[in-house]
Design a protein around this nucleic acid. Structure first.
Lengths: 247, 247
DNA sequence: GCGCCTTTGTGACGTGAATCACAAATCGGC
DNA sequence: GCCGATTTGTGATTCACGTCACAAAGGCGC
């Protein structure tokens, strides 16, 4: 389904990105969930779990599976999705370095609520559920960080749900997906320029609308000069116009 | 908007429900968030915050306000809602005894994401944001409970969002609202019998659909013998049929 | 019991977007 | 550079719901 991200042409022989040896020296440490732990807690965190590599297409876990492990992405991209009873797919996010998977399900003591599939070869830290819970148990600060991570996850879905409930406009939904994607890639710019590695089908699954509607809306946005598409590179010229479509 | 819940005819003079003196002896303690704290943590929890009474119509806080306090409902009902830019309202839940309000916003360090309005006179424990955060800081077990509360809040919105994104069927949305409401009131019964204190307008705001559609769907459900309405009492005869409408 | 106000019930109508069905373009492998 | 597979573009059709408009039915105060 997905084209490989084109900046990732290099594969086995020469990894474009150095892989990590341990969590103490991880470059993502300072901006992610388990930054700011006390030294003891961090040391404990570093001690548990194992680092594993996964290839594109690998499934880390599937929706409905009992939670055996908690995952932290060190490097690469993972597609987080969920499927309705009728078989329609919803892509919730593309998780990247520093993202934690399985936390909410582990704490709520329910099966995974989503599926995770590798879309760009990954290095992942895998912790057994119990050893992760022990970490939280023994270090209050780790629990606190977990709670904070959960609040922001909650906020994200909350606003998603609100948008979905109150605005059914397909244009608004697509606009949101594009803006979020663009902002994540090129933050803080007036013009958002990025490589659109997703197909229309996948954009549709992220916005919860149909493939054809995505095609139609994109060409409409182009007609209105709100964005430019050149090959797989997309530039959002007028983010504020797209923003206005959002409820 | 809301008719007063009819089991709450008694007002000022003779409270139908005894109010609570402290958190150590609260009858909801065993089934709610801060059950299972260590004795020290529980004692600390009991020590902070103050108990306050609010009348119907009182606003505890509004969406967008900076988080000053965290609230725990001891008794009564609070309407949790959010409004879109275009002014459409979305009622997220009717919170009751044991429910915690403001946790996610406090931890994510953002303004309240929802508004809270009393719809049935309430006794509420109000904690200053900072004293609550201190509690979490000092008692790992409290952080852990908070994290657990957040995971289940997250799970709830997650499934809401999923339903909203994948099924736009008005019938499915309304069915979900009715089932959730009924199950909360008369749990574990094949037939769900309860007092529908909400108007069609409010049901519409909970399901994110229009008032007229609620009216039409309800009479359709009645025609299909899935439920019976008699005055303000509603009985869901065939919950599984309604369940099937849910994606 | 009489009005007033809120809530409920129903018809008519318009429309946004899903669905179906192809054609055109593009990609990827050999 | 050619060929099959995937992705994209576009029209025609359909339908579920929102919106508008108004009538009927309850409540409730006095």
């Amino acid at each position: 389904m997905l084209r490989p991200a084109n900046h990732e042409g290099a594969t086995a022989s020469a990894p474009v990105h150095p892989h990590f040896q341990d969590c103490l020296h991880c470059e993502h440490r300072h901006l992610r969930v388990f930054c700011n732990l006390t030294p003891e807690a961090l040391e404990h965190y570093d001690r548990i779990g194992i680092l594993m590599n996964f290839e594109r297409g690998a499934k880390l876990f599937s929706e409905g599976d009992p939670v055996r492990n908690i995952y932290v992405i060190c490097h690469g991209q993972v597609k987080i999705s969920s499927v309705s009873r009728s078989g329609r797919a919803l892509i919730l996010k593309i998780a990247g370095p520093g993202d934690l998977m399985g936390l909410s399900a582990a704490l709520a003591n329910v099966p995974y609520e989503v599926s995770a599939e590798v879309i760009e070869s990954c290095q992942v830290k895998v912790m057994r559920r119990q050893e992760f819970l022990d970490l939280l148990d023994q270090h209050g600060v780790a629990s606190l960080r977990a709670a904070q991570a959960l609040s922001s996850a909650y906020m994200t879905v909350f606003y998603d749900a609100k948008r979905l409930a109150l605005s059914n406009s397909a244009a608004g939904r697509l606009a949101r997906v594009l803006l979020d994607w663009g902002r994540a890639v090129s933050p803080g710019h007036a013009e958002l320029r990025f490589t659109m590695t997703l197909t229309h089908e996948e954009l549709a699954n992220m916005a919860g609308i149909s493939r054809e509607t995505v095609t139609r809306l994109l060409s409409q946005f182009r007609r209105d000069q709100w964005l430019v598409v050149k090959g797989s590179s997309m530039t959002i010229l007028q983010p504020d116009q797209l923003e206005r479509l959002t409820v």
